[in-house]
Every structure is written in C-alpha cells, then in structure tokens.
C-alpha cells in the first residue's frame, strides 16, 4: 500500500490533479526534489564566536575615550576593527570553502580569505596588547603570532589546489570552472528575483528549475567536452530566465496581473522542458561516445582473433 501524502485543498502545495501535466518534461519521471544538489549551510560555531570575542576591546576602547588616553583608544578600537574584519574574512572564506567542496571542478579562490583573516587577527591582537593593554611591544608581537598560529590551525587554510582537473586539459577545465561559476551566479540571481514574486507555488517552481539547471552543471562538470554545446544554456537561457523573472516579479507584486502570470507559467514550463531535454542530450552524447568506444574495442578484439 502506498503512503498517502498529507494535505488538504488549502495546503500550500496542493495535490496534483491526476493526469495533469507535470513539471518534469512530460516523460512521467517525478519532478526533481527542490533540495537536490543543494547543501545545508554548515555553521561553525567557533567561527561565529570570532565576531563576539573582540567585544571587550570595544568597551575598553570606549573607556579609553573617557580616560583621555588617545594611544590606548587607538590600540583598542583599531584592534577591535581588525578582529571584526578578520571574523568577516573568515566567514567569507568558510563560505567559499563550502562552495569549493560542493563542486566537482573548482578553482582555488583568487583571494585566500582564511589565511588573510589569520594574519589580520594576529595584527589586531598585537595592536591591542601593545597599545591597549600596555604590554611591551615584543610581548604584543608574541601574542599576535600565537593568535595567528592558533587561527590558522583552528580554522584551517583556504583550499589552494585546483580540484577535479586531473587528467583533463587544464585550459579546458579552467574554462568549465569559470563558465559554471558564472552560471551559478545567474541561478542565484534567478532565485533572488523569484523571492520577490511573493507566490509560494511559483517560487517552488523556480526552485525546481534551479535544481534542474544545477543538474546540467553537474553533467558539464563531469565531461568538460560538453561545454561548447552547453554554453548557450549556461548563459543565454539562464540570463533570459533571470531577467524575465525579475520583470515578472516587479509587475506581479504591483498588480497581480493574471495574464502575465499565465504567460510566465508557460515560460517556466518551456524552460523546464528545455532544461531536462538539454541534460538528456548531454548524457546521450556521453552514451554514444561509450558506444563508439566499445564498438571500436570489440572490433579490434575480433580482428586480432582474441574473441571467438
């Protein structure tokens, strides 16, 4: 017996009518789950705490203003600013690292945020120790160095190596990584624009569309040779989808125009079909490559009499 889905006529995602057209490209396959290829954001609690640990320095700096100690204030508020900057760099670095981990083909970040965060934090501690807490300068430098070392050890270094680029032409895979980065940005823009529509059903459809787009990305990442054929998809279609969504969101949030909504839904349907078609075609090409490979090898075995 199949489990029955919970929900009534007023539930946010009403049960599909039996036999109604589905958003799966019409081939009977179930629609992609919305969270496919998306990861939950990892939260590193210690990294979050780096935003709060420098707070006493802020209070101390404000206290120095009351005391009239200009150098002390400079050390404490300067140290506080540097430590907050370091905390922000660290959180950006962790985000970049997550994105790097989630992808099969990735380039190292252009700016090593976590390493710079460690160094900036060390300078902040040294400044706060020597000017603020009144320690001798060498002691401040030692504390700063230990803080940098602990930061780098505790929060790690940035990913420094190219990933998934072994055995493939480096130039080619670099192009793939760049193209996917651009396309991911377009998908993020698409999702942002869909948030402004203010209609849960449509937002869910756009999210499914984004999941389908990411499926295509994974296919391209797996086989960089697909890039030339997927390039149009990665730029033109996604950009069009994003711009159309932004315009529709503006319009629909103003006047709830049902005509525009119908047209937009038709566009989403077309895009869904085209995205899944695209993915299938790219995979089909891999399949025919494999067939050719097998054919050639078997023929060769035949010719050399290794096979009965």
């Amino acid at each position: 017996m199949a489990a029955e889905r919970f929900g009534g006529p007023y539930s946010p995602d009403p049960r599909p009518e039996p036999g109604a057209g589905q958003a799966d490209g019409g081939d009977g396959a179930p629609p992609l789950p919305r969270f496919r290829n998306r990861r939950a954001t990892r939260v590193n609690i210690l990294a979050r705490l780096t935003f709060f640990a420098p707070l006493p320095l802020l209070l101390a700096g404000l206290g120095e203003i009351g005391q009239g100690d200009a150098m002390g204030m400079l050390g404490e508020l300067g140290g506080f600013a540097l430590l907050i900057l370091a905390a922000w760099l660290l959180s950006e670095g962790l985000k970049a690292e997550d994105a790097y981990d989630a992808r099969k083909v990735a380039r190292p970040p252009a700016f090593p945020r976590k390493i710079v965060a460690g160094v900036v934090a060390g300078i902040g501690v040294a400044l706060a120790c020597s000017l603020g807490a009144g320690l001798p300068i060498p002691a401040g430098i030692v504390f700063g160095a230990v803080a940098t070392a602990a930061h780098l050890l505790g929060f790690g270094l940035d990913p420094m190596r190219k990933k998934g680029l072994e055995g493939v032409d480096e130039f080619q895979s670099d192009r793939v990584a760049r193209a996917i980065e651009g396309a991911e940005a377009l998908v993020a823009g698409l999702l942002d624009a869909s948030q402004r529509i203010g209609d849960r059903g449509l937002e869910a459809r756009v999210e499914r569309l984004a999941a389908q787009a990411r499926e295509v990305f994974r296919v391209v990442e797996d086989d960089p040779r697909d890039l030339p054929r997927a390039r149009k998809f990665l730029t033109v279609y996604l950009m069009g989808a994003r711009d159309a969504t932004a315009k529709f969101a503006d319009l629909y949030s103003r006047n709830r125009d049902t005509g525009a909504r119908t047209e937009y839904e038709a566009l989403l349907g077309d895009l869904e079909t085209s995205f899944s078609q695209h993915r299938k075609e790219l995979l089909l090409d891999d399949r025919s490559d494999l067939d050719v490979e097998i054919e050639v090898l078997r023929e060769r075995l035949n010719r050399e009499g290794l096979k009965a």
């Binding site: 420098p54 320095l57 120095e64 005391q67 934090a121 120790c129 807490a133 230990v146 602990a150 505790g154």
Partner: peptide, 30 residues
C-alpha cells in the same frame, strides 16, 4: 589526538587570546 579535536582546541585558544586581550585592555584602562 584526532585532527578535529586539535582544530577545536586551537580555535578555542584563538578565541581565548582575543577575549582575554580585550579584558586585560579593559582592566588596564580602569
């Protein structure tokens, strides 16, 4: 000791240095 534990301790040491620096600067200012 395992890697994650070591990393956690190092991160904790970093936070402690920052926090205590702030406290001692606060104390010195009083």
């Amino acid at each position: 000791m395992s890697g994650p534990a070591l990393k956690g301790i190092a991160a904790f040491v970093f936070l402690a240095i920052v926090f205590l620096t702030g406290l001692s600067a606060f104390g010195a200012g009083l």
